[in-house]
Every structure is written in structure tokens, then in C-alpha cells.
């Protein structure tokens, strides 16, 4: 693919790994996950599974450094992760190209043509984001990952509102990212068509309650 050349030129330097050891994280003071350990290395994809409320979003936000972990160790600093969640961070009055260039410049990159092409957005480049469909917005949000230049993608439900063709397109982009030495951590309910991806079920790591009530323990 065309954009891959760009990524390869900057390159993901050598072998890298995210290692999580005995992690516990909480939402709203209520522990959701505890004793979680896993590793993702260059070239690997890990799919997180678990029912609603099992703490997928909380885990990903904790990894991305948006909230503190209760305990445990995360070896990869948030500066090496590209985080994408339900909200795409798009400005409706800016065009597709403007939105993407902004995030590219924030991450010290210039070239957005590869990312536009990879997510099939080239024809829409001049259109304002408010006139995009939900799926097109999502594709633009995912194109942002390509301009961050970061090796570990942390993705929360990346395929919401994408049609089958777009899901396949995105799976291809992820596969190319892995081939270039990147890695991906995905929370998703649908099958992405990434047979090589390992699956991690979060259900066994559900935090035991009681007695550990996190911050409020001291009051009992």
C-alpha cells in the first residue's frame, strides 16, 4: 500500500513491547478489573473481549494514561500509543483534510495523503466534516491513527458505524500496520477478519467485590 512506504521510512524502531503486570483499574471509584497481565509486541494484535461494563473502555483509558491505575505495572509509556475511542475528535466546520492535517501536525508529521488514501477518503478531502456520514466520520477518525506515527494503537470499538467494506478496509490497514512493526490493542465485539489476532477475555479478571472497595475502603 502507498502509505506504508511513508511509515516504513520513519519506521518503528526495532522490536517493542507493551507488558502489563497485575493491573487493577477502576471507574468512578469502583474497581472493575484486577490481576490483569498480558503482553503485546511488535507485529501482534490483541483483541479484548468481554460483556458491556466489563471494563474494556476503562482499561484502554488507563493504558492511554487518561486515568491512573489502582495498581500494577505498564511498561509502555502513553507517549508511544495512539488512542482512539468512540468520539473521533473532529471539528464539524473544518474539512476532512484540515482535520487530519491538524492531528498530523500535532504529532509532528506533515504528509496526510497516504492516510487519506488508506482510509479511502481522498475524494472527500475538501468536504466539511459536518457533511460526512457517520461511517465516513469514523474512517476519518481512524485515519488519524496513521498520522500519529505511533507504534501501538489502542482502539476502543473502532468499527462502530462502519459498513462491511469499510471494516475490511480497516482490517487491511491494521494488518499493514502490524507488518510495519506496529501493534494493536482492540476492544471490539465484531470479528475484524484478523485471524492472526489473539483474543483476551476480560471476564476472569473482573474485580472481586467485596472486600476491596478502592478509595472508599477507609470509610467502612
Amino acid at each position: 500500500m502507498v502509505w506504508l512506504g511513508g511509515v516504513r521510512r520513519f519506521g518503528y524502531a526495532g522490536f517493542m513491547e507493551l507488558r502489563v503486570t497485575d493491573l487493577a483499574c477502576a471507574r468512578g471509584g469502583l474497581p472493575l478489573i484486577e490481576g490483569l497481565s498480558f503482553a503485546v509486541a511488535s507485529g501482534e494484535a490483541l483483541v479484548l473481549r468481554g460483556p458491556n461494563g466489563s471494563g474494556k473502555t476503562t482499561l484502554l483509558r488507563t493504558l492511554a494514561g487518561l486515568q491512573p491505575a489502582l495498581k500494577g505495572e505498564i511498561t509502555c509509556p502513553p507517549e508511544e500509543m495512539a488512542y482512539a475511542a468512540h468520539a473521533d475528535g473532529l471539528k464539524s466546520t473544518l474539512t476532512v483534510a484540515e482535520n487530519l492535517s491538524f492531528w498530523a501536525e500535532i504529532h509532528g508529521q506533515r504528509d496526510i495523503t497516504g492516510a487519506l488514501e488508506a482510509m479511502n477518503l481522498t475524494d472527500l478531502a475538501g468536504r466539511q466534516a459536518q457533511h460526512l456520514s457517520a461511517g465516513q466520520k469514523r474512517r476519518l477518525g481512524l485515519a488519524r491513527l496513521l498520522v500519529t506515527g505511533r507504534w501501538l494503537w489502542v482502539l476502543d470499538e473502532p468499527t462502530v458505524s462502519l459498513d462491511a467494506a469499510s471494516v475490511a478496509l480497516f482490517a487491511g490497514v491494521v494488518r499493514d500496520h502490524l507488518a510495519a512493526g506496529g501493534a494493536a490493542l482492540l476492544a471490539t465485539h465484531i470479528d475484524l477478519g484478523l485471524p492472526e489476532a489473539r483474543v483476551l477475555d476480560l471476564a476472569p479478571y473482573r474485580a472481586e467485590l467485596p472486600p476491596d472497595l478502592g478509595f472508599d475502603e477507609a470509610f467502612l
Binding site: A64, G65, L66, P78, E79, M81, A82, Y83, A84, A85, H86, A87, D88, G89, L90, K91, W103, I106, H107, G108, R144
Partner: peptide, 16 residues
């Protein structure tokens, strides 16, 4: 506005 559309999360994880 940046909080609502998620930009603030993304800016917080950006190099800035």
C-alpha cells in the same frame, strides 16, 4: 466543545 467531541482526550494523549 473539545471535551464533547473527544478532542480533549486525544490532545491529552498527544505529544503536546
Amino acid at each position: 466543545l473539545d471535551h464533547e467531541d473527544g478532542s480533549l482526550d486525544l490532545l491529552a494523549t498527544s505529544p503536546i
